[in-house]
Design a protein around this nucleic acid. Sequence first.
DNA 1: TTGTAAGCGTTATCAA
DNA 2: TTGATAACGCTTACAA
Lengths: 340, 340
Amino acid sequence: MSKHRSAPTLDDVAKAAGVSTATVSRCLNTPQQVVEATRKRVLSAVDSLGYTPNFAARVMAARRSFTIGAIIPTMENAIFARGLQAFQEEIHKQGYTLLVSSSAYQPAAEEEQIRTLVARGADGLLLIGHDRDAQIYDYLERRKVPALVAWSFLPNEPIPSVGFDNRRAMEALTSKIIELGHTRLATISGISKGNDRARLRIQGIKDAMSRHDLSQDDLSVIETSYEIENGADAFKHLMSNDNPPTAVLCGNDVLAVGAVRQAQQMGLRVPEDVSITGFDDIELARIVAPALTTVHVPHRDMGRKAAQALIQMIESNAPGKSVELPTHIVGRESLLGLNS
Amino acid sequence: MSKHRSAPTLDDVAKAAGVSTATVSRCLNTPQQVVEATRKRVLSAVDSLGYTPNFAARVMAARRSFTIGAIIPTMENAIFARGLQAFQEEIHKQGYTLLVSSSAYQPAAEEEQIRTLVARGADGLLLIGHDRDAQIYDYLERRKVPALVAWSFLPNEPIPSVGFDNRRAMEALTSKIIELGHTRLATISGISKGNDRARLRIQGIKDAMSRHDLSQDDLSVIETSYEIENGADAFKHLMSNDNPPTAVLCGNDVLAVGAVRQAQQMGLRVPEDVSITGFDDIELARIVAPALTTVHVPHRDMGRKAAQALIQMIESNAPGKSVELPTHIVGRESLLGLNS
DNA sequence: TTGTAAGCGTTATCAA
DNA sequence: TTGATAACGCTTACAA
């Protein structure tokens, strides 16, 4: 058993302290099970050897990793940053480590990441939104890996969710806009395929239009991926119509910022010439000028509650219960009433 | 060997295909070593069982994880997002997986994360900046884990770096500002303790002042952590002096955005009443109005080159060579010459 | 080209 | 309270 200069193992510590590996393991994991004297001896051996447990070995033996995986659609913009930060703080507090990966909004990539995280021994998974292949849920079920959805609240889906009602939130915002006198509406949405948040936000706009006796057909919809430049391009396209909208509802703040900047480049005043709204209420929404009227999402609260719910599922081995969080409209400068 | 409904193992696949576990392993790792007929049989067994290799077991046996760890100071703002994204794309292309964690600018947290990542079997580590305890470098050395620094280029430090010269970049920007007629300068810097980037940027300002016969004592310095609100507070403080600066150089774009917004709230025009500059050239710098004059950092290029260099170190087991990348000044609206 | 079998560093069961 | 020792699932000499 030659050990030149590689990492010290449990065995090394055991020898140094004159005990068995089992005792060393207990000192580290269930200290109360070992008497003070030996514990001290062992811990000082641990210290002087600079021992750190080998994670892979531990996972294999314990069949448990104290690791939680999260797969988010993107890290490129700040949409998920705050919520994820809160999620990670909470699970850390409870002794878990977070593994994050990004799917770049690609279902195939997401599926691969899920398998990767499960193979890495994740004790549980945080996913964004409900829309994905049924076989993924089967897989998770078979592997008995608890999973939870955030950023969307749909209690009848296969796995529980901690989030908000995207449809109703957008309906509320749209109603407000219509009540301000706008009738020519347009939306710059994220790609709705495979994205329940985007899909339901569009639906929410239509709900409000119906309720206010506007024809849903009058809603111009452009779907594009969530980048500032795309928001700008879409806005340009929308405004080049014969009968351009007086209010453009964006699927999120990032697209809205692109729209605002494009408006300015086109010499349009926001909100005097055209109103623009966002969704999410990330920092960007306050920074852009004019600041965005948007839907506030309780990111940190959602992150924290999701963490608690997921850990609950992991540790109790129980089904897990969904939690709905409230959103509200934040009125800022980018939305103005129509005084004909 | 009961296996109720838990994950299929190599052994299950081997039995299903009528071969040994070694052959299955080879099919997955070195397919060219096994003849077509058996390979096909094995792979179809893999498929029909839905087999995924157990990562922990693989790491233990192979003593190699194809995982690279990165510890960045913060995920809260976008400073590191682009570079890290490029880093991850490049290592992914080469078959590695990225594990990211954030130290929240706390040296103790960073050290813990380093140990955690090493215990998790990371084949290499990406760190930000050079300033840290010498014992960490010892530890990495003993464990023989290759590490590389980014966002800073200092070729004489203990580990190689792929980055840029923070000091010289800031000196260039400052020189330009001085040549525009500004003499009353101030800086809102990140906390310089334990942060070579922040420290060297301040030093760069002083270099330029000396070179232009301004007294370094005339530079007001406020150090604060990298958040928009802190930039705003610091700016307010600076401008409340009897003899306020005509140009405020910020340690990064985030602080600069805070300063710009505070200026506007105080009724000061930027840049007519006061010039403000940033550093990094993240997206925010273009979005804020007025857009920021800032130092452009080649984030994506740096991320990609860092990935290549680190993988090189891992696979060749060689020391690794540092790479310096150029930066340049991006002139936008927030900086104006002093006429009078 | 394929199989055998010895690790890899823990945890956990069972005895002592 | 502690110690032996059998897993855990995979890779990799070495042998066939």
